[in-house]
Amino acid sequence: MSYNWNWGVLVSEPYLGWLISGTQWTLAIACLAWIMAFTLGSLIGIARTTPIGPLRWLGTAYVELFRNIPLLVQMFLWFFVFPEVLPRDWGRWVKRDLPMPEFTTAVLCLGFYTASRVAEQVRSGLNAVPKGLLAAGQAGGLTLPQIYRYILLPLGFRIIVPSLTSDFLAVFKNSSLALTIGVMELTAQSRQIENYTFQGFEAFTAATVIYCVITAIVVVIMTRVEARLRVPGLLGRQQGAL
């Protein structure tokens, strides 16, 4: 194995700047996509547990559709296909006037995709609330919205915090797919440094370490959140939050 080591490349310009900018894009895509996924996914997850048939059906269809098409294909569908099948004027607006088209598309695509995963977690959380509580709520004269507001949602969301942590971590990793439509996020920047300097070992090590640090920070924060939100006496800590 012949290889010229040069770790100095990582702290020299412009490469250090590339890594920092890549990290910022990764964080921006992941955080915005997560906000969108959490909101949309919660609504869809709730829809799947309601006694209203069409809502349940729509929720199921959404989850099955978005979970069974590879994320890369979805990325290309939003970026290349979606503007073409829109009405002509809208399509032209998307293609010409959408601000930061690659970034915006990546966030939307990742948000819609992750929403399907969040929806599954929310559904399982709501289903995990003991049935006796539901019956008690009904017996106490609560309406369906009140049962959701005061019983199901507060407990359901606390139950699924550990699984949501793993979905949140997945968003950071999946944001790397934005490079396929031209966003220069962390993985893309490390590849670019390799292409420019042939120091692949150093470049990929840097990216790997940054991803590990992001993961570690999220895990530390979420462990505290989990400890605070755990429902006493209901469930133990779930294994494998990573």
């Binding site: 990793k173 999946n174 790397s176 993985t187 390799e194 070992f201 990216a207 790997t208 993961t215």
Partner: peptide
């Protein structure tokens, strides 16, 4: 489990 699959693919394509 902390790194994206794309990065792993790049790693071994290079390594």
């Amino acid at each position: 489990r902390a790194v994206p699959l794309i990065l792993v693919i790049f790693w071994f394509y290079f390594l």
